[in-house]
Design a protein around this nucleic acid. Structure first.
Lengths: 136, 136
DNA sequence: CGAGATTTGTGCGTATGTATC
DNA sequence: GGATACATACGCACAAATCTC
């Protein structure tokens, strides 16, 4: 698989697809660093903007995490703790607002779960730390 | 509220905050177009890169949707249908992979819900179309 | 159908700031 | 202090997609 600048799918989407494959194949293991921006512009023959946008896309998918002045790393996903959905409750998944994300110290690309119980009380949980359950 | 280039919070984050406020206030209604990149660079006195990064941020939050050669639009959120969590099931919220996003025709910034029932069968649902429920 | 206007996508150059080693 | 690398920000130019006339 390689990058075709004349394709109708944007270059940065193609590059993100390539990197995603390498991550999901385990070639880029959790905790390991992605190649630097400069390297990727050379290796893939694309512009810096394309590299940066592809990384931004992977961040929004929760796949990688960028540390300023250090590099971009494949995210290690925290173990999910089990949370029971209370009887009579409803749950909605959505992306956090910028304010919420900063307040809850969430990485980019991490959804939240909004649990509204029978009394109408609302609780917001980090979506990557939780596995909802309903007992049999 | 205005943009301060000397602030420690990046210009594009400030701009995204401004636009988010205008969207949540209803000033930029669902389905309506945001000002073009060129307009915003003039109106807010910032560079195009800052404008594009702020829009990218809003996309990752599921607030807007960009169509090339046309514009960026405030997303119209579909009505959520209620889905009951089966007894003995577990649910995980995450961002879709690129492949999933295209297959399910999801906009950027839309999480998915992965429901694993008691038999181990897995179902993936668009997170913005669903409200999970557990009967009392 | 084509022509032109508008808008986003891409690439590149440059500069400054900041974090890490 | 210096080297490296990423973050932010501005500028310009052209390509490609879309719409209108």
């Amino acid at each position: 698989m390689t990058i075709d600048p004349r394709s109708h799918t944007p270059v940065y989407v193609q590059l993100a697809d390539l990197l995603r494959e390498r991550i999901e194949a385990g070639e880029l293991a959790p905790g390991s660093a992605l190649p630097s921006e400069a390297r990727m512009t050379q290796e893939y023959g694309v512009g810096r903007e394309a590299v940066r946008m592809s990384i931004s896309l992977l961040r929004s998918e929760g796949l990688v995490n960028t540390v300023r002045g250090h590099g971009t790393y494949v995210r290690e996903l925290p173990q999910r703790r089990q949370v029971e959905v209370p009887p009579g409750a409803s749950v909605v998944a959505r992306m956090p607002s910028g304010r919420e994300r900063r307040a809850m110290q969430l990485d980019e690309g991490v959804p939240v779960l909004e649990i509204r119980d029978a009394k109408g009380d609302v609780e917001v949980l980090a979506g990557d730390e939780v596995e909802l359950t309903r007992p049999a």
